[in-house]
Write a protein that binds this DNA or RNA. Sequence first.
DNA 1: TCGCTTATGTAGGGCATACTACATAAATCT
DNA 2: AGATTTATGTAGTATGCCCTACATAAGCGA
Lengths: 201, 201
Amino acid sequence: MSPTNISPSRGRPRRFDPDQAVETAQQLFHTYGYDAVSVADVTGALGINPPSFYAAFGNKAGLYLRVLDRYAKTGAIDLAGILRADRPVAQCLIAVLEEAARRYAANNGAVGCLVLEGTHSTDAGARSVCCATHAAAEDVIRRYIAERHPEEAGRLTDFVSATMSGMSDKARNGQDLDRLLATARLAGLAIDQALPAQALC
Amino acid sequence: MSPTNISPSRGRPRRFDPDQAVETAQQLFHTYGYDAVSVADVTGALGINPPSFYAAFGNKAGLYLRVLDRYAKTGAIDLAGILRADRPVAQCLIAVLEEAARRYAANNGAVGCLVLEGTHSTDAGARSVCCATHAAAEDVIRRYIAERHPEEAGRLTDFVSATMSGMSDKARNGQDLDRLLATARLAGLAIDQALPAQALC
DNA sequence: TCGCTTATGTAGGGCATACTACATAAATCT
DNA sequence: AGATTTATGTAGTATGCCCTACATAAGCGA
């Protein structure tokens, strides 16, 4: 039934912590991209041998799923928290863009958005899971806008998403926080104009 | 001195046309990306064997340079033609974005911007030449803006460039011309607001 | 202590990649 | 015609990749 540990400690104990391994792998994938990080890179960084890696994660794609899961909890933007029903839609969308700018700015070399970067991978599996993750995030934005501005939801979601992709790209090309924030705020001018100050709520 | 043909026809003639091979390779690279296209893919599409390929282009990177050269002449946006001194800066920048939307929309599967896509390559050589090409294009835009709006040149160039990156990304994820154009025009609202209608010229 | 279970280390398989050595074919120049 | 030049076709090299077979080590339960 359950393929993972049923009894917490039977057999020879692991010499490494899988959760910390996921953290290390996240740093590697985020910094260099899925394609550029080989299994040998990961095992080398962890100081383990390939069989230990495959016993713990199945394969490279399995590790990547764990990394994406961790990213959703620790590195990604909390859309549900920012897109508030008690504030103007435009203001919240701009807050998303500004938060993206902050997250995408350099963090120990792990720059840009891990998911958007994974969207460009050559590996079909990595690409599709990232595209699905990204599409889900877009849906959250789209539904949020649609509740109060149904006719604008489509194009505004496209615009916000494109701006985030662009910012992730620019972050990876070396733009610092200030420049990313400036782009977010310029995009905000368009959002403000497309969603003219409605009565609150 | 000149490593290429000095006398137009000596020795055994080629069984393929290098220029047409570059065109075929451009289609492949644009559709699938530099990393995903192997030399075997190219030689297979051309119906030639590896030695013919290497004799003509040196290596994969050499072919890519030829492709980028051809792209600059046939597929890229004619910035110099669109950024006119006799029209409002904002209007010309918006025209660039709209033209990008048109170019990035599906063309036989070759969607998005070849150069921006190459920016994401795993290969350091391909990546750096694409980054350099892209930086040159950004400089054209920046200098154009700076002539009439020096203080806005930096952030507006960043914004236009980020928007183009985002549109290229979205095009590769399946957005059609209408959605890309809508994003371009929303970005245009921001540009219009950042460059309030100056007197012409 | 003995079996059972789980993880490890060594070593390597299978595959795709970019690229090439070498003999041969097909053209021109003298 | 013979020499020279250039491209081709066959076959293969070297490298890096993901992943695994197998014997061994290290813990627990009886």
